[in-house]
């Protein structure tokens, strides 16, 4: 554990909490892609299958459980409790376009052709593109509430901080993971356009609005 990795985890946690609080306090999930949230829930389930077989630390286990519960809580709020506020007309990204390639790629490129390992690899590939339905939704409506922007910024920062963590681990521990690193770079690059808009608009108090 190093400071970059910890910051990444905290940014991830903050993102998840921002989203839950936004939905809970406004009693609405308008502007949020339920499809992205389903993909994140699937990602966590596939990755944390080792929760009971591979003990790392208390921190690790607790965070895994928190991420799982929070992602299921978010999906529950969107599809059950506040279903009426879910903007499904704008959430039209086809999930199979992301899930099927992630399955195929995880079967072909993995560290070891074993069940848990392939599920882990699938989760890495799926997570890297899981935000696309949300970004697609923002581009379709042409705008995002500031709270949604803060959520996306925290979520994007998480993988960017992990990249710094991987560089640190490579030099300090001689440890690297090509699959996680390449997928993490793809994931972070997907946020670049958003980061630019966030810094130039949202931080200056303006609403995130895409140029017409």
């Amino acid at each position: 554990m190093n400071v970059f990795r910890l910051s990444g985890d905290v940014a991830h946690l903050i993102a998840i909490i921002i989203l839950l609080l936004k939905i809970w306090t406004s009693r609405s999930c308008a502007g949020i892609s339920g499809k992205s949230q389903i993909l994140f829930a699937v990602t966590f389930v596939a990755r944390y299958l080792d929760l009971f077989t591979n003990y790392v630390s208390i921190y690790n286990s607790v965070m895994k459980i928190v991420y799982l519960l929070a992602s299921f809580g978010t999906v529950y709020l969107m599809y059950m409790k506040f279903k009426a506020t879910y903007d499904h007309n704008h959430d039209t990204f086809r999930l199979e376009f992301l899930i099927l390639p992630a399955i195929a790629l995880s079967l072909i490129i993995n560290h070891d052709f074993a069940v848990i390992e392939v599920f882990w690899t699938f989760s890495i590939y799926l997570e890297s593109v899981a935000i696309l339905p949300q970004l697609f939704m923002v581009s379709k409506t042409g705008e995002a509430e500031s709270i949604t922007s803060h959520y996306l910024f925290a979520l994007g920062s998480y993988r960017a901080l992990y990249i710094v963590n991987w560089i640190y681990r490579y030099y300090m521990e001689g440890f690297y993971d090509m699959i996680a690193t390449l997928a993490g770079i793809v994931q972070t690059v997907l946020y670049c356009d958003f980061f630019y808009l966030y810094i130039t608009k949202v931080l200056k108090g303006k609403k995130l609005q895409l140029p017409a």
Binding site: N60, Y67, D112, R169, F175, D177, A180
Partner: peptide
């Protein structure tokens, strides 16, 4: 076997 995995990460 796996040498370069990061399964200790989240």
């Amino acid at each position: 076997s796996i040498k370069h995995n990061m399964h200790d990460e989240l």
